[in-house]
């Protein structure tokens, strides 16, 4: 069992847990993720390692409540435990030789962006960041991102904080103004990563995205997480989850994420129906 040491509500439906997992913390590196299962009979879901502390043996995860498992997870409190917590999985990111990097994070994508920018900052790289969310309430980890950025732009879809508009608007402006970066990292919903990658492509700037296909084992054993990158089939759990955004077939990824739409809805309805019954 893995104990939740600390819980924070970052935004409505976005929560942060600090988990006691010394072995995972020991080897964790930016870019990697874990898979957890709340209890017997539960689903295995992948979540990015948003931060880690080797000394204290902890791993931080940030998740958005979108369906049955993440909602159930959100009801747990500090002191509760989860059955399985596996990792670190996936490949660590490699920024060797980078001097000036731009990080773009949309919505929940800000969480996986953070450990990468932190690593860059620790290595003396000049970091610019653009983070955004639907509205001011939904914006997460602003202070953390700020602490690892030389320059930060904030936007919201509704203009309730920072610039009014999508993160991609600021991205486009910076590039149009002639700003140069050695690498651009874009993390967020697949559609954001797709549009972002299309924007950076004409400038020929290497663009890293972090993909979120459906997974089961996370060890390269089922092929559920397969994505097409540069015409080749890759398993995101062992070959990724970070890939070259200019080569990813986003349309396929977006379609494949729909596979269990009906089942997800059924599970969620039952879950919420179930919680209603408790209050009767």
């Amino acid at each position: 069992m893995f104990k939740i040491l600390d819980k924070k509500v970052l935004a409505p439906s976005i929560k942060q847990f600090v988990i006691d997992a010394p072995l995972v913390a020991q080897k964790a590196q930016p870019g990697q993720f874990i898979i957890l299962r709340i209890k017997e009979g539960g689903e295995r879901i992948p979540l990015t390692i948003a931060d880690f502390d080797r000394e204290n043996g902890t791993v931080t995860i940030v998740f958005q409540e979108v369906g049955k498992t993440t909602k159930e997870l959100g009801t747990l409190q500090a002191g509760d435990s989860i059955a399985d917590f596996v990792g670190p999985l996936g490949e660590a990111v490699d920024f060797t030789g980078r001097k000036k990097v731009l990080g773009v994070g949309g919505g929940l994508g800000v969480a996986p962006l953070y450990p990468k920018l932190k690593l860059l900052k620790e290595n003396g790289v000049e970091v610019t960041s653009i983070i955004g969310a639907r509205n001011a309430d939904m914006l997460i980890m602003e202070d953390e991102i700020k602490a690892v950025s030389d320059r930060m732009f904030v936007c919201t879809d509704d203009g309730s904080k920072g610039r009014h508009g999508f993160v991609t608007v600021v991205l486009k402006e910076l590039l149009e103004q002639g700003e140069k970066f050695d690498e651009i990292i874009i993390i967020g919903p697949p559609i954001l990563m797709k549009i972002g990658s299309e924007i950076t492509k004409p400038y020929g700037i290497p663009t890293m995205v972090s993909l979120n296909p459906i997974m089961v084992d996370g060890t390269g054993m089922c092929g559920c997480c397969r994505v097409t990158v540069g015409g080749e089939v890759k398993f995101a759990c062992v070959d990724g989850p970070a890939f070259d955004g200019h080569k990813v077939d986003f349309d396929e990824l977006i379609k494949r994420l729909e596979t269990y739409k009906d089942e997800e809805k059924l599970a969620l309805d039952r879950h919420e129906g179930g919680s209603c019954k408790c209050h009767q």
């Binding site: 539960g42 089961v216 089922c222 559920c224 269990y260 089942e263 599970a267």
Partner: peptide, 24 residues
Amino acid sequence: YSANEFLTRINLMKAYNFPETDTP
């Protein structure tokens, strides 16, 4: 599906019990 994914969902994750269990 790969056979591995199909069988893993059913055997290890007990998808035959969905929605009692969570993996479809």
